[in-house]
């Protein structure tokens, strides 16, 4: 069957799931931290700091404990270069997805790295969180605009 079948009636169907969620004490603290320009993790079993924090340790399922500040610098653990960003992606220009292990954290966090080309990106490179301006942050993951190479302006 051809894709361009003129006799097939099609129409757009826009679907939304407009749920309101309560984020709770742990993710809530993380998002509130972002609003304040800080990255907060939760201490899991054996003292491993989990970032982004979860209410339960992902390995032992024990409740997590003390919330601690990590970063804002960290190390790239893995990356993937997006040469053609999609409209829904956080950056309009080519960028890298990165898993960043923030200083003080025992797990990695997914975000985007604003870098000029894949040649400027490598595993183990040092990066830092670049927050959107104070007053424009509302307590969401996008309060971090992107990560940028550490030491850059």
């Amino acid at each position: 069957m051809a894709d361009s079948a003129d006799d097939v009636l099609t129409s757009a169907h826009v679907l939304e799931y407009p749920y309101s969620r309560s984020v709770g004490p742990v993710i809530g603290a993380f998002l509130t931290g972002l609003r304040d320009g800080k990255i907060i993790g939760a201490t899991g079993s054996g003292g491993v700091v989990i970032v982004p924090p979860t209410e339960y340790d992902p390995y032992t399922a024990e409740p997590t404990g003390e919330m601690v500040e990590v970063g804002p610098e960290g190390t790239v653990e893995s990356w993937a270069w997006v040469g053609t960003p999609a409209p829904q992606h956080p950056l309009e220009t080519p960028f890298a997805w990165v898993l960043v292990r923030l200083d003080g954290a025992g797990t990695s966090m997914l975000h985007v790295l604003d870098a000029p080309s894949p040649d400027a990106v490598s595993t183990k490179m040092r990066v830092r969180a670049d927050f959107v301006a104070e007053g424009e942050r509302i307590g969401r993951i996008q309060d971090i605009r992107a990560f940028v190479p550490a030491g850059s302006a």
């Binding site: 993380f30 893995s78 990356w79 956080p90 997914l110 993951i141 996008q142």
Partner: peptide, 24 residues
């Protein structure tokens, strides 16, 4: 839905991060 989905990481990108880890 709080820390990943708002960034819209597509399945190819997530698989690419996994592939990079394998290479590294």
């Amino acid at each position: 839905p709080y820390v990943l989905a708002p960034l819209w990481p597509d399945p190819v990108s997530v698989a690419a991060l996994q592939a990079r880890s394998l290479l590294d």
